[in-house]
Design a protein around this nucleic acid. Sequence first.
DNA 1: GGAGTGACACGGA
DNA 2: GTCCGTGCCACTC
Length: 106
Amino acid sequence: MKQQESFYQKVLQVVQKIPPGKVTTYGAIARYLGSGRGARMVGWVLNTQKGNRQIPAHRVVNRKGMLTGKMHFDGSNLMQELLESEGVEVVDNRVDLKKYFWEPGL
DNA sequence: GGAGTGACACGGA
DNA sequence: GTCCGTGCCACTC
């Protein structure tokens, strides 16, 4: 825990840098950090910070663009409301990654 | 130190 | 394109 530059901290940094109206995937973040297949860790990190509203976890979706974190966010459609408020069209708890996908570190 | 956990990604059907 | 099962990595208890 002495290394503040650990995977845990980096995930939070990247998520906070996601611009409004854009979304990214867990795999993209994990791959950007060098974990590649550690996409599950990204979700785990947000799970510990889900109570932290400073983390726009609603902008992070899975490979299918589904708002998987919605169920962990608060159980309501708040996650979708936030995305729509930023201009991201959400359909059936899913977003169009082809239009709103954002690459970490961009 | 060891085992369990997790908001996923990939391959195959 | 979607659903099912398997594998990964880093962190917590």
